[in-house]
Amino acid sequence: HSLRVHINGKDFEVHNADEHVIRALEELIRRGADADELKEFLERWKG
């Protein structure tokens, strides 16, 4: 899957995101994670 996440006016393109990554991202958003947390998660995932 390809996923586009809009954080703090920046678009993050997440390519080849598997279900696990997408679910983790949705969980963060549901918990009310702020932009920094989401960005950190995506950067860690992209490795």
Rank of each mutant, 00 (worst) to 15 (best):
H6A: 04
L25N: 00
R4M: 11
F41L: 06
D34A: 09
E37V: 08
D18H: 07
E40A: 11
E27R: 11
K46M: 14
I22H: 03
S2W: 14
E26R: 14
E19T: 09
D36W: 12
K10G: 02
S2E: 10
G9C: 01
G9R: 01
A24C: 04
I22W: 06
N16K: 04
H1S: 15
E13T: 09
A33G: 06
L42I: 13
R31K: 12
D36F: 09
N16Y: 07
A33Y: 10
I7H: 02
W45Q: 03
H1P: 13
R44P: 03
K39P: 01
E27M: 15
R31N: 10
I7D: 00
I22V: 09
L3T: 10
E27P: 01
V14W: 03
D18W: 03
R44Q: 12
G32R: 05
H6G: 02
N8W: 04
K10Q: 13
F41W: 11
E19W: 12
L3E: 05
V5N: 00
D34F: 06
L25P: 00
N8G: 09
R44C: 06
E19S: 09
R44A: 10
H20Q: 11
A35N: 06
G9D: 02
E37Q: 12
N8E: 05
E40M: 12
E43G: 10
V21T: 12
F12C: 02
R30W: 12
S2P: 13
L42S: 02
E19N: 08
D34G: 11
N16A: 07
H20S: 11
R23M: 10
E40T: 13
H1W: 03
N8V: 01
I22R: 04
V5I: 14
K39G: 10
F41I: 05
G32V: 02
L3H: 09
L38K: 00
K10C: 02
G9P: 00
R23E: 07
V21I: 11
V21Q: 06
K46F: 14
E19L: 13
E13A: 05
H6N: 12
E19A: 11
D18F: 04
R23Q: 08
L42E: 01
L25I: 10
V21M: 12
F12W: 07
A17H: 04
F12P: 00
L28K: 03
G32N: 07
F12V: 06
N8S: 05
D18T: 11
V21R: 02
H15G: 03
D34I: 05
W45I: 07
E40D: 12
I22Q: 03
D11G: 05
I7R: 01
H1L: 07
I22A: 03
I22K: 05
G9V: 01
E37S: 08
L42C: 06
V5A: 03
R31C: 03
A33D: 02
L38V: 11
F41S: 03
D11E: 14
A17V: 14
F41M: 07
V21F: 11
L3V: 15
N8H: 06
K46A: 14
R31P: 01
H15R: 09
H6T: 14
E37I: 08
V21P: 01
A24T: 07
K39W: 15
G9N: 02
H15N: 10
F12I: 07
N16P: 03
E26I: 15
F41A: 09
H20V: 12
R4W: 07
L38I: 10
E27W: 13
H6R: 14
K46I: 14
H20K: 13
L42W: 13
E43K: 14
R4G: 09
L25H: 01
E26M: 15
V14G: 00
L42P: 00
G47K: 06
E43W: 13
A17Y: 04
R31A: 10
E13V: 14
R30G: 08
V21E: 03
D11P: 09
A24P: 01
H20I: 10
R44S: 11
I22M: 07
A17D: 03
F12T: 01
R4S: 15
F41K: 02
I7K: 01
R31L: 11
D36G: 07
F12N: 00
H20E: 10
L25K: 00
L25D: 00
D18L: 05
G9T: 00
K46S: 14
G9K: 01
R31S: 08
H15K: 07
E19Y: 13
E37P: 01
R4P: 05
V21K: 03
D36H: 09
R31Q: 10
S2C: 06
G9E: 01
G9S: 01
D18R: 04
A35D: 08
D11W: 15
G32H: 05
K46H: 10
A35T: 12
W45R: 03
I22C: 02
R30C: 06
L42Y: 15
I29M: 09
R4Q: 14
D11Q: 09
E13W: 15
L38F: 11
A17S: 05
H1R: 14
F12K: 00
I29T: 03
A17I: 10
R44W: 11
E43F: 13
S2V: 15
